[in-house]
Design a protein around this nucleic acid. Sequence first.
DNA 1: ACTCGGTAAATTGCATACATACAAGCTATT
DNA 2: AATAGCTTGTATGTATGCAATTTACCGAGT
Lengths: 237, 237
Amino acid sequence: MATKEQIKINDQPKISKQSKPRTRAEDLRNSLENMIVDGLLAPGEKLDEMEIAERFGVSRTPVREALRALSSTGLVEVKGRRGMTVAAASISTLLEMFEMMSAMEGLCAKFAARRATPQQKRELRELHAELISSLEENDPDAFYEINARFHNLIYDASHTEFLAEQTRAVRRRVAPYRRHVTFQPGQMQDTIGEHEAILRAIEDADPAAAQGAASKHILLLGDNLTDFIASLPPGIR
Amino acid sequence: MATKEQIKINDQPKISKQSKPRTRAEDLRNSLENMIVDGLLAPGEKLDEMEIAERFGVSRTPVREALRALSSTGLVEVKGRRGMTVAAASISTLLEMFEMMSAMEGLCAKFAARRATPQQKRELRELHAELISSLEENDPDAFYEINARFHNLIYDASHTEFLAEQTRAVRRRVAPYRRHVTFQPGQMQDTIGEHEAILRAIEDADPAAAQGAASKHILLLGDNLTDFIASLPPGIR
DNA sequence: ACTCGGTAAATTGCATACATACAAGCTATT
DNA sequence: AATAGCTTGTATGTATGCAATTTACCGAGT
């Protein structure tokens, strides 16, 4: 009946922190979120309840709950009674997102400069080295992934709960578009330099410098991305 | 059967923008959100699906969907399989929230200074006058409400979609705690002065000044609130 | 040929019924 | 008497069925 083969949802090897509910709706929420963030579901794409339910081998109920949950994050749009779609952001909205992320990453970096443990500083420096390696080996996929880990580590090092989570949320929100900019010529090179500045400010425990550097980094990234997208023919956007 | 009388959900007189879905789950989401924000449902309080369903005269399904939606906003916490509660923030989390709001309100004010229409500037000035009146008449409830409208108007005047919505979201998130601080001695007086600074910067179309003033305003507010809450006996928090 | 209207199909929204997991209380055993 | 295990009860999670609305398709009229 199901034309597409069933997808095995989150069969993660139960990491130590298994406090998570482990319910179908929750797993679905994660899976769908990842699929959107990774671009497997394109912005604007229609999300058919029954099709998703069939593909994941569950009923419509947990699917609906997962989609509702994602809609509050902004990753999914509910259209009255006409189903839900993967959220599609306009260029002006993208600009706003980066403006916001710039501020929030700045805050995270500020706190990280004040609170990062020596261990975390070491790990940051290590990731930075890995990032440079991935650039030298010209491996954009690795670059993208290591870059994400670098930023995530800064969030962790900020030793905040709410702020870190909100920042991650915005990051996820722009992720579907963000990947494109990584492959822009010169982008990776610029990133290395900007990360270096952030990293140094954190190592020096200089909150203001860290905030400024992180904030600037994201703003530049946003400019590049929106320039890129604006250069695309309207149909593709 | 239902021990408590049924509550009439959103019977709003269909404002012009009736593009909204008008579905039970959506209405419930709004109603519950308002109840939490207005303090009718206290932080930490248990949310019983069946009880809510009965009180609103609907089945559990839309209730669950509404609660799921709110959980992604952070207003509601899902506790494994043991139901959901109104989110309760720790003091450190509250501090983070205000730190974030400070940055976001600053951004909104910055854009408002650049983009506010003359009409909006007039309305802001008008609301400011009303705020002063409510202070003189010693009407904290009116003060609270007018203050909210003042800030909302700034969000509107920023002419942003995403940023304004996110800022409102954080505002709603802290609202359950925020009300307390309004009644702190001197708080209302201070607010007037800080609003005056924001207002003047917007009228002068000075983005940097507006950003600074708005940011500072929220930070001060946050300090007062957390001081106040920290002074409470742990049981009440 | 194009548009307008109506009807049918499909999809979403809601309700109810069923399954499952957690909790509390009781009993039995040490 | 205390603790451990079982049992029962309650509340959450999931599935399915039905109702309502939207969309798409087809035919008729201009």
